[in-house]
Computed example of a mutant assay.
Amino acid sequence: MKIKILVLTSILCIGCSKVAPRKPINPKASTTVLKETIKESIKLNAIEEAKILDVIKKDSVYTFQVSSNGFWYAYINKIEENAPTPKEGDVAVITYNVSDLQGNIIYSKEQLGVKNYRVDKEDFISALQVGIKLMKVGETITFVIPSYSAYGISGDGNKIGINQSIKSTVTLININN
């Protein structure tokens, strides 16, 4: 009986010893990979921005503005009066569509239906989260959104590919508190 207790205690002591963390074989390699990834991302963003600017330049109907958040937008229907805009916690009732940069519809507003978006309280296309707060009831805005403010490196898992820039035309129907 004493031998069993001694063996059991020995096993428990050995099993509970701390394992020393392993150090990287080549610590400089991870820094190099990170630097290369950053360089590649900068190149991809520059190519993407050039494509977006080309699309905007070719649009002779609307004047696009650039936001401080890295997307472009143009008013299709602008309300001049001093009306409220959605703020955090409000429910913005919107219709919207999603198309590629050439204007080919990916998701129509009929497919997407009317969306009740709780401002800054739910996950949505990041550029539209910011853009909706610029809108007044009755306005329609077309947003040109780089991939990093849309669906990023993963796409939507369906029709929107990885690193794909999109356009979205949004109409603000109502603001509910």
Rank of each mutant, 00 (worst) to 15 (best):
K4Y: 13
L6I: 10
L8H: 07
T9G: 05
T9Q: 04
I11S: 03
L12R: 05
I14L: 15
G15K: 10
C16S: 15
K18Q: 12
K23N: 08
P27M: 03
K28R: 10
T31F: 13
L34I: 11
K35S: 13
K35Y: 09
E36P: 05
E36Q: 12
K39Y: 10
I42R: 12
N45P: 04
A50Q: 14
I52C: 03
D54I: 06
V55I: 12
I56K: 10
I56R: 10
K57S: 14
S60T: 14
V61T: 14
Y62T: 05
V66Y: 05
V66A: 15
V66G: 09
S67D: 06
N69M: 11
F71A: 01
W72F: 15
Y73E: 00
Y75D: 03
N77D: 14
E80N: 14
E80V: 08
E81P: 00
P86V: 01
K87P: 04
G89C: 07
V93I: 15
N97W: 09
N97M: 09
V98F: 03
V98M: 05
D100Y: 06
L101M: 05
G103C: 03
G103I: 01
S108T: 10
K109W: 04
K109E: 14
L112I: 05
L112C: 02
G113P: 02
V114W: 02
N116P: 02
V119P: 02
D123Q: 15
D123T: 13
I125D: 02
I125Q: 00
A127E: 06
Q129A: 07
Q129R: 12
V130Y: 15
I141T: 02
I141K: 00
I141Q: 00
V144I: 12
Y148F: 12
S149V: 08
S149Q: 14
Y151N: 07
S154T: 13
G157D: 02
N158W: 08
K159N: 10
G161N: 01
G161D: 04
I162Y: 09
I162G: 08
N163V: 04
N163E: 11
Q164E: 11
S165E: 08
V170I: 12
V170W: 07
T171W: 08
N174H: 08
N176H: 08
